[in-house]
């Protein structure tokens, strides 16, 4: 038994089925813990009073929107390079959740911007590039839906994903490269976080929860795709036989 065993859809299907409950429960527990910190342990902010609490979902959602895109581009690249079936399936399974988190980041940003900045939306570089990310997700999903031929669709969608990945560093560095209304990063690898420890803790716990949630739903989705694509194989037939 080695790692390559799980590159086969049949084995991965079984493994994913076993892992999903763990990730789902982990996500649930960490979400409750994170929300408890966000609303009951984290103090009010010196500038923004209670409105800053939106950060506890806004930042994890914005991180996820970019991470998921990069993971998608990674699987797409692996698929294009080695023509591995499972990689393309992973890329397809990631997109809807990535789009969801991008929408959440934009939505919570608007509902934070209105009371604090005084505007729901401005066309600054950070907000605009994040909106382009949402369009990319929607465009990639639409492209996959439009191409009936699975293999060709896989390649076209992954190619578009790779081209669009240039947008991710643009989003991340936009607040450094240009004058934006959006503030700079509170947490980054190059400097100490400019947040009180308990606030940071709540935000990180909710970020891990978002990761576990993403893994759980993506595994559910990829299992569905595996069944669909491998329906002619013996193992899927045997599996369905056993269930009915």
């Amino acid at each position: 038994m080695n790692l390559y065993t799980y590159a086969s859809p049949a084995n991965f299907y079984t493994l994913a089925g076993r892992l999903i409950p763990w990730f789902a429960w982990g996500a649930g527990i960490l979400t409750l813990w994170g929300l408890y910190i966000a609303f009951f342990l984290a103090p009010t902010d010196f500038q923004q009073s209670e409105a800053y609490r939106i950060i506890f979902i806004h930042v994890p959602a914005a991180w996820m929107s970019m991470f998921i895109y990069l993971v998608m581009a990674f699987w797409g690249a692996i698929g294009l390079a080695f023509n591995t079936r499972l990689s393309f399936m992973m890329a397809r399974a990631l997109a809807p959740t990535g789009a969801m988190f991008t929408f959440v980041a934009l939505w919570t940003g608007a509902w934070w911007g209105k009371p604090m900045w005084g505007a729901w939306w401005v066309w600054d570089a950070r907000l605009t590039s994040e909106l382009i990310l949402l369009f990319l997700y929607v465009g990639i999903i639409a492209l996959w839906a439009a191409i009936d031929d699975i293999k060709r669709g896989d390649r076209a969608g992954s190619l578009l994903t790779l081209i669009g990945s240039i947008n991710v560093p643009i989003i991340y560095f936009s607040v450094k490269w240009w004058n934006t209304l959006h503030q700079g990063a509170s947490v980054s690898v190059t400097k100490a976080p400019s947040m009180a420890a308990i606030m940071l803790q709540g935000m990180l716990i909710l970020s891990i929860a978002a990761w576990l949630y993403t893994i759980a739903v993506v595994l559910v989705r990829v299992r569905r795709i595996i069944l669909e694509r491998e329906r002619q194989t013996e193992w899927v037939k045997a599996l369905l036989e056993k269930e009915s």
Binding site: P43, T44, D45, F46, Q47, Q48, Y52, I55, M116, W117, G118, A119, V122, L181, Q183, G184, A185, S186, S194, M195, A196, M199
Partner: peptide
């Protein structure tokens, strides 16, 4: 015609800010 507030990336309780 429009005035927007630009805040920084620091978050802390009022006592800490003080």
């Amino acid at each position: 015609t429009q005035v927007l507030a630009k805040h920084d990336e620091n978050y802390m309780p009022p006592e800490a800010a003080h």
